[in-house]
């Protein structure tokens, strides 16, 4: 059955697939993961703060983002942001944002919602005596969070955060709806051009599978090493 398949097309496309496609995918994953983590932590702190209004805003945001399909957000955001930018700045024409910036912002916003829920669980898993002890020593709220609560929460949550990042790595393939040459997009382009759909999509699947699997294994190893001694 494989007799009429041409796997050499993969070899010829490798430089393009990895230098352009995979570089884009990994960059987007890393930046979106980092941004999502920072904003997610901020949202989690808002939700856990004593201020009802802040908590409410953060809650609505998280529920809103989690109720929409990611691909729809990517799509809408790409086409809407130029007009929102125009409206805000009062420019005469829609502001061009660029596919990369647009997809990066979308992923950060989207991941922030998911990361914030993970961080919230992580912070809530720290017993209330810990911040009390830190406060009793004279640490301010910010110092208590930075030196006592968040380091412990991060360590407790790191496996889940990294697993979510692996999911993010797979999800970045959705930018393909914006015709961006990420890894899947690049593979798809070659596939269409050379008429080798089966080979290219098979190869893309193998690559995503391998990277995700190795990363998951790494997370498990890491988890064993960084766990707080209890």
């Amino acid at each position: 059955m494989f007799s009429n398949l041409d796997f050499d097309v993969i070899r010829r496309a490798l430089p393009y697939l990895f230098y352009e496609g995979m570089t884009f995918t990994l960059t987007l994953t890393a930046l979106a993961g980092l941004g999502g983590l920072i904003f997610g932590t901020a949202i989690a702190l808002m939700r856990l703060s004593g201020y009802k209004v802040l908590g409410r805003i953060a809650g609505v945001y998280v529920d809103f983002m989690r109720s929409l399909p990611l691909v729809l957000v990517i799509f809408w955001f790409y086409f809407l942001v130029p007009y929102i930018g125009q409206w805000i700045t009062g420019a005469s024409r829609p502001i061009s944002v660029g596919a990369f910036a647009s997809s990066l912002i979308t992923f950060i916003m989207f991941e922030a919602a998911y990361f914030s829920e993970i961080m919230r669980a992580g912070i809530q898993s720290i017993s209330r005596g810990q911040p009390a002890a830190a406060n009793a020593l004279g640490l301010t709220y910010a110092q208590t969070m930075r030196y006592v609560v968040l380091p412990q929460a991060f360590r407790n949550m790191l496996p889940v955060l990294l697993t979510q990042t692996i999911v993010l790595f797979q999800d970045t393939s959705l930018v393909y709806v914006l015709s961006i040459p990420d890894f899947l997009g690049a593979a798809s382009k070659v596939a269409q051009r050379d008429g080798r759909l089966v080979e290219m999509y098979l190869f893309a699947a193998v690559v995503y599978f391998t990277i995700s699997c190795v990363a998951s294994f790494g997370v498990r190893r890491l988890q064993a090493r960084i766990a707080i001694i209890r």
Binding site: G129, A132, A133, A134, A136, L137, G138, L139
Partner: peptide, 18 residues
């Protein structure tokens, strides 16, 4: 915070930072 830094407190469950 300034006041608390001058008041030592010891808790039932120790609350050392693990």
């Amino acid at each position: 915070p300034k006041l608390r830094s001058r008041v030592g407190m010891v808790f039932q469950h120790f609350e050392l930072f693990p």
